[in-house]
């Protein structure tokens, strides 16, 4: 099992009030799955993504990633896991504006402590995979939205992560470009990449093989999707 959570809870202290964002999530994800997490804003889907993306720790419950308990690790240990196991793609791309596409893709390799020559080769390879071999030296402002999101996907993939997280990856793109990005995800999944999509759009969620709906901090439904 790639991801296995048990009674995952998350509480926030807002002033004197305690907000419970997750009320006990039990979730299992196998390697190679293409999964969507849906839910309206405030449902807790972002909190869930933060925890299974190792950006945050649960208040209680346990989380095992690759058969390793990660719910009680320190900040820096989580950073190492994010670096090697998880790739993030964000709605607003989150590229460093002053760096070239290649430098952006190389960033995770720098934090992984790779040698420069090796890092350049790896980054160029993965930029090729997303169809941007000829855009290596362009800065984000010289790229279209779709191209920027491809650079971000290349960056997420460059360390060969166990899971690719995509948080509303098509939210800032027009529908044509959005569907191209979704095709890219599908292709990557067919090549064996585990992908978890966070979205509130049914259209997008439909493209994945399994849809989980979160409501008020609990899993409301967990449906296999065989339409595609």
């Amino acid at each position: 099992m790639l991801i296995s959570t048990q009674n995952l809870e998350k509480k926030y202290q807002v002033g004197s009030e305690t907000v419970v964002a997750l009320k006990g999530i039990n979730l299992s994800v196998k390697k190679g799955e293409f999964l969507s997490i849906m839910g309206p804003s405030g449902s807790g889907k972002t909190t869930l993504m933060n925890i299974i993306g190792c950006l945050d720790s649960p208040s209680s419950g346990s989380y095992m990633l690759n058969n390793k308990t990660v719910s009680d690790l320190s900040d820096d240990e989580l950073a190492k896991i994010r670096n090697s196991e998880i790739g993030f793609v964000f709605q607003s791309f989150h590229l460093l504006a002053r760096n070239t596409a290649l430098d952006n893709v190389m960033l995770p390799l720098k934090y992984a402590g790779k040698q420069k020559a090796e890092a350049i080769t790896l980054a160029k390879d993965v930029l090729g995979q997303v169809g941007l071999s000829d855009r290596c030296s362009h800065s984000p402002s010289e790229l279209s939205g779709g191209q920027q999101q491809r650079v971000a996907i290349a960056r997420a993939l460059v360390n060969k992560p166990s899971i690719l997280f995509a948080d509303e990856p098509t939210g800032n793109l027009d529908s044509k470009t959005g569907s191209e990005i979704m095709k890219l995800f599908k292709k990557l999944n067919e090549e064996g990449q585990t992908i978890i999509l966070i979205t509130h759009e049914d259209e997008i969620a439909k493209k994945s093989k399994r849809v989980i709906t979160i409501m008020d901090g609990l899993i409301e439904s967990d449906v296999e999707n065989n339409d595609e």
Binding site: A79, R82, Y111
Partner: peptide
Amino acid sequence: TREIGLRKALGATQKS
């Protein structure tokens, strides 16, 4: 702040 968040998401430790 966002850049720092991103760098941390990509695996930057506190030290780096």
